[in-house]
């Protein structure tokens, strides 16, 4: 009985670890993406944001 509970707990921990890894790999590796994004952004952020003015709209 105790053995089974322990096995189940171990199993549960393993699943949690796998899940955590999946989540962290989901959350990181933005580096290469951000490198590419940096290269497509205007150099003067402040001027770009200030000049974005729209007229009216529904």
């Amino acid at each position: 009985m105790a053995d089974r509970v322990q096995r189940e707990r171990a199993q549960q921990r393993a699943e949690e670890v796998v899940e955590a890894i999946a989540r962290s790999s989901h959350a990181v590796d933005y580096d290469a993406i951000l490198d590419e994004i940096d290269s497509v952004l205007e150099s003067d952020a402040e001027e770009y944001v200030r000049s974005f003015v729209q007229k009216g709209g529904q």
Binding site: I33, V40, A45
Partner: peptide, 25 residues
Amino acid sequence: PRLAQLDLAWARLDRPGPFDVLEKA
């Protein structure tokens, strides 16, 4: 301004931007 800039670039359609980079990845 840097994050506001990225927010605008996200919405820009006429040239490759951050959304396209995410999609390509």
